[in-house]
Simulated assay, not measured.
Amino acid sequence: MTDGSAQPPGDGSRRRDRRARPDSPPADAAGDPSAVLHAHLRAARSEFENQVARTRADFEEANERLKERTGRDLILAILIGLAIGAVLIASLIIWKPVFLILAGAAAILGVFEFTRALQVAGRRVDLVPQLFGAAALLLSAWFFGDWLHWVVLWAVVTVVVVWRLLGQMVARDGRRYADVWDDVVTGVLVQLYVPFLASLCVVLLRQDRGEWWVLAFIIIAAAADTGAYATGLTLGKHPMAPRISPKKTWEGFAGAVLAALVAGVLLAALMLHLPWGTGLLIGAVILATATVGDLGESMIKRDLGIKDMSSWLPGHGGVLDRLDSILPSAGAALALYYLLTPLVTQ
């Protein structure tokens, strides 16, 4: 026995089917090809948006894990690094003076960062002579040549020392002799570490085909850094220098060795027109100087009690944090140029 509310057979199942499939076209549009197409397009767009949302969530989660492990925004660091690399390559290939401007700006910013960090740590380092000294060293390396460049270096060091001593005499604050001496030595260190080493890169740039040598040693240093980072991140277990830089591992160093040697061989043969065997020497030397520079700056930052020299380059830290492996490699690259240029094959 049935009542008046009974429904035709199959009607409830059709409603349940429509509820289970909200993206299916309505029954009244089933015979309309345009409506069916629009319904499928909406369903495809909805699926695409959901997929994008899931991919973005997975990406952000992976990036957060990397940030927790490395302390840096890896994706942002890669993007900034690629942008800097593109500008660097363009300046070297298109017109050398553009690279001089970039190198000068980087050196001056590095001096500014280093000086400010030392001042915060209690050292009395005078910013004005440091900045003028950096500009003088870079310009002399470009315009005056090798020997006069050394004369300018001694003049700049003398100005830095005299300026600090005169400043101390004017202050008359009873500062201990040992502290004053440390201030003087620190001021000289700033000039030798940042602008002088950067000026050696400019001296190399002035040489015949020097732009290719500059590009080559920077690529090798960057390859070593990338190899160390990637290998250390994935395989690193044994700390290399835990008291200086706890995150550097021997596995990462092995990755740096492989990357530097491969890059050295390829660049020697394809860019520098040298026998491929010399690429092993170039790669090994640049690897050594880049590693020493990296560990050296880490030691300085640990002594100052800071993580980065500044936060001007998101994902990288400061300008000097990006120059730590490049600066000492510039002098090594210049020496290799003088040594290996006679072996160049046309």
Score class of each variant (00 low, 15 high):
Asp3His: 02
Pro9Met: 06
Pro9Asp: 08
Pro9Phe: 15
Asp11Ala: 11
Asp11Lys: 12
Ser13Ile: 04
Pro22His: 05
Ala27Ile: 04
Ala27Thr: 03
Asp28Trp: 00
Arg45Ile: 13
Arg45Lys: 15
Arg45Asp: 15
Ser46Gly: 14
Phe48Ile: 05
Asn50Gly: 07
Thr55Ser: 15
Thr55Tyr: 15
Arg56Asp: 12
Ala57Glu: 13
Glu61Asp: 15
Asn63Arg: 06
Ala77Pro: 00
Ile78Ala: 12
Ile80Tyr: 13
Gly85Thr: 12
Leu88Cys: 01
Ile89Gly: 08
Leu92Cys: 03
Ile93Thr: 15
Trp95Gln: 03
Lys96Pro: 07
Leu100Pro: 09
Leu100Glu: 08
Ala103Met: 14
Gly104Asn: 13
Gly104Gln: 00
Arg116Tyr: 01
Leu118Met: 02
Ala121Val: 00
Val128Phe: 11
Pro129Gln: 08
Leu131Ala: 04
Gly133Glu: 01
Ala135Gly: 02
Ala136Cys: 01
Gly145Asn: 09
Trp147Thr: 04
Leu148Ala: 15
His149Thr: 07
Val152His: 07
Val152Lys: 02
Val156Gln: 10
Val157Glu: 14
Val161Cys: 15
Leu165Phe: 04
Leu166Ala: 06
Gln168Ala: 12
Val170Ser: 13
Arg172Lys: 11
Asp179Arg: 15
Asp179Leu: 07
Trp181Arg: 06
Asp182Glu: 03
Asp183Tyr: 10
Val185Tyr: 11
Val188Ile: 10
Val188Gly: 00
Val188Pro: 01
Phe196Thr: 04
Ser199His: 08
Cys201Tyr: 10
Leu204Arg: 12
Leu205Glu: 13
Arg206Ala: 10
Asp208Trp: 14
Gly210Phe: 08
Phe217Lys: 06
Ile218Gln: 04
Ile218Pro: 03
Ala224Phe: 12
Ala228Cys: 05
Ala230Ser: 11
Ala230Gln: 11
Gly236Phe: 01
His238Val: 01
His238Arg: 08
Ser245Gln: 09
Lys247Asp: 15
Glu251Gln: 10
Gly252Ser: 15
Gly255Cys: 10
Ala259Pro: 03
Ala259Phe: 12
Gly264Leu: 05
Ala268Gly: 00
Ala268Phe: 00
Ala268Thr: 02
Ala269Glu: 05
Gly279Ala: 13
Leu287Thr: 15
Leu287Met: 08
Glu297Trp: 05
Glu297Tyr: 01
Met299Trp: 10
Lys301Leu: 06
Asp303His: 06
Ile306Trp: 07
Ser310Asn: 05
Val319Gln: 02
Leu327Ser: 06
Ala335Leu: 08
Leu339Trp: 10
Thr341Ser: 14
Pro342Leu: 04
